[in-house]
């Protein structure tokens, strides 16, 4: 069994990663770190750079857990792509970061986190940036 975490190089993403590492230690399960970029643009701010990955590797190896990095791209729907990987790897827990947003903002922009919460068929841990 393993734990999956959606990683983006932002404070929310880092908070999610931290929580996922703690959980992975606790359950003694492998951690899958997923960063998925949207196709089409040449540059995407949610894509992890090699520097970001170095940082992640440092944090993970300090925690002393098993982990895998999965980089993927999606065409139109991040939620589907993320849940596809989660199902394929038969994970026991999904960890995602939540941004604080108003209802109006969520209506206009949509929310992948919300859709993952609603559509996932396994436990989801949602983390906020200022949780610590």
């Amino acid at each position: 069994m393993s734990i999956i975490v959606g990683y983006v190089p932002t404070p929310v993403g880092k908070a999610a990663l931290d929580a996922a590492i703690a959980e992975s230690k606790l359950r003694n399960e492998e951690l899958l770190i997923v960063n998925s970029s949207r196709e089409g643009a040449l540059v995407d701010k949610n894509t992890a750079s090699s520097d970001d990955w170095k940082e992640v590797e440092a944090v993970v190896s300090a925690a002393g857990i098993d982990s895998q990095i999965i980089e993927s791209t999606y065409r139109d729907d991040l939620t589907e792509e993320f849940l596809r990987i989660a199902t394929e790897r038969k994970v026991s827990l999904i960890v995602i970061g939540l941004r604080q947003r108003t209802q109006v903002g969520k209506f206009i922009m949509g929310s992948h986190a919300q859709r993952i919460l609603l559509q996932a068929d396994r436990p989801v841990l949602a983390v906020k940036a200022n949780a610590h």
Binding site: W53, D66, S67, Q68, I69, E71, S72, T73
Partner: peptide, 21 residues
Amino acid sequence: MQKHKDKQDTPETDEIIATEA
């Protein structure tokens, strides 16, 4: 830590290789 790269053939999930110099 083991770094793992998945390769899948469906275009939607074409997982890319981390690119270095």
